[in-house]
Design a protein around this nucleic acid. Sequence first.
DNA 1: ATTTTGACTTAAG
DNA 2: GCTTAAGCCAAAA
Length: 106
Amino acid sequence: MKQLSLRDQVYAKLREVPMGKVVTYGQLAALVGHPKAARAIGTFMRTNPDAPATPCHRVVGSDGRLTGYSAGAGLFTKLQMLKDEGVHFKGDRVNLSASQWHKYLG
DNA sequence: ATTTTGACTTAAG
DNA sequence: GCTTAAGCCAAAA
């Protein structure tokens, strides 16, 4: 049987995230069965930022803080895309209480 | 094959 | 709220 690599599972989950919602690295890691792989998630995003089907801009830090971004103008581009999707912001951070992705709440 | 580095997280002072 | 330390995973050197 074909075992999907951890990164492929991460991409699959990330593609489920609807616009206007975001997920944290840790949450994404937990969703694929590796709650401690948050760091690796960052590696995956960094090595594959061009995947058109991979909305890596919807991945933020545990506090809603926007950490690195390899494409466009970096964090600036990421911030613009998130705001454009209707994500709620609290200063420089995402308001997770309002915009964090919940699988069963849409 | 081993070491270093990094888009992380949590705990403790 | 900020800094330090330790834990974990994968890619790059």
